[in-house]
Nucleic acid binder design. Structure first.
Lengths: 236, 236
DNA sequence: GAGTGCGTGTATACGTTGTATACTACCGTG
DNA sequence: CACGGTAGTATACAACGTATACACGCACTC
């Protein structure tokens, strides 16, 4: 591929990296970068290795196979959403922000969404968020059962809204991922252009549907979900 | 591969199929069968062709590429959930059954879930359900805005709950897909086995969390979501 | 009927992929 | 200063998606 020393030297130049050694995290980040720039289908062991100035087989010192690598990417993205401490005193708003941040993190990496459908992609970081959310609710006097229920509703709604967003996207390729408003406009036109005799309701509600699918009304509805659940649960 | 006539004869034996000709639908069904039996990763053009007693390149007369074939599978599964007319008079129960059937259909084909995260997988059949749901609500006197909102909440919750189910599944391979109770038990043990100092809340709520992730409490919570939304919307 | 054009499936081939296996160079320890 | 383990390399291979060119058989005209 290239003379071994030159490759090592080149990677060693990166600041803060001792002797240019690889690491799981470094590989994961490089993989995520490729997925963001070119889509999941373009994430290839060879391309990944090249971006790290390393031989393809070097990856296999850190991951048993490509699937194992991919399985860690969702958790990596989720962990990015948890960095800020974000102290909002009011519970409902804190929940809103927490789930909104999670959604935001996922939306910034649309390429990984197929991985949401593969088994066992959540590990420590995702669990840490579960723990945090449950703890916060309990500390506001919400019972364990009610807290779990609210968590379930909010999480499912959040993940589902992310999946819905992709489902009608007309932009097959990730490259110039349309911004929310642009996506909304495209979807709205898509709905409105359907045969009115076959889909009268969809055509009539095309604007509102586009607001939902594009995620424009996500926070508003999430707050509704939270409030409904909180109303049924005694708390301070 | 094999003598051409023998292959054609063999397929021609299938009843109702004129001259043993292929068709998009026939290919899709065969693809889904492979995904069900062996997982999405095992869906290969060559294997698919073999299961249809045909040369790999024959597939490309019906689909421009493999991705285009895969993109149709979600819609195929969804369409299976819509066959029954299921006339439940009461609106809230009708909605419950409709979304529950959708979830059921998706759960029967766990292999396609990664496809939920790829763009543009919904077409006619999914839209038909949207149309049906909106129409039913409107005919019960619910306004367009409220109907769309309820649709959004219920759909996102349903899809999200499907995604959640997969996310903690310990059974990496689809083959003997654990039944709900078995899955629940595995998940519960997984949650309960976490370090109690790091995840006290998760460990304490392990049973309830397993109920959520395994989907055991899906219908119950979906009904809650529906009722909350209906309460805010005037209807008959 | 005899040609004939087109649609359906075939044969062959190529570049790319994931990864098994065997190797080499280096670094910290004795 | 030997030397064993660790990190990365070199090479190889089977399987993949699919481009290209071809063969066959049915539905037409004349």
């Amino acid at each position: 591929m290239r003379s071994p020393e030159s490759a090592a030297r080149e990677r060693a130049k990166e600041p803060g990296r001792r002797a240019g050694q690889l690491s799981r995290l470094e590989i994961q980040r490089a993989a995520l970068r490729i997925v963001d720039l070119a889509g999941l289908a373009e994430l290839t062991v060879r391309r990944l290795a090249q971006s790290l100035h390393v031989t393809p087989m070097a990856i296999y010192r850190y991951f048993p196979n490509k699937a194992a690598l991919e399985a860690t990417l969702v958790d990596l993205v989720v962990s990015d959403s948890a960095v800020t401490a974000h102290d909002t005193p009011e519970l409902r708003l804190w929940l809103l922000h927490t789930f909104a941040r999670m959604r935001h993190a996922l939306c910034r990496h649309p390429g990984i969404m197929p991985l949401l459908g593969t088994a066992s992609h959540s590990s420590g970081n995702a669990l840490a968020i579960v723990e945090q959310v449950l703890g916060r609710m309990r500390s506001h006097g919400i019972g364990s059962g009610d807290a779990t229920r609210l968590f379930y509703r909010a999480t499912a709604f959040t993940l589902g809204s992310v999946v819905m967003m992709d489902s009608v996207s007309l932009a097959h390729f990730v490259k110039p991922r349309p911004v929310q408003d642009e996506l909304r406009r495209q979807q709205r036109h898509g709905f409105a252009a359907l045969p009115k005799t076959e889909f009268p309701q969809v055509v009539a509600a095309s604007a509102a549907l586009a607001d939902c699918y594009s995620g424009k009304r996500f926070e508003q509805e999430l707050l509704g979900v939270i409030d409904d659940a909180l109303q049924a649960a005694p708390h301070s």
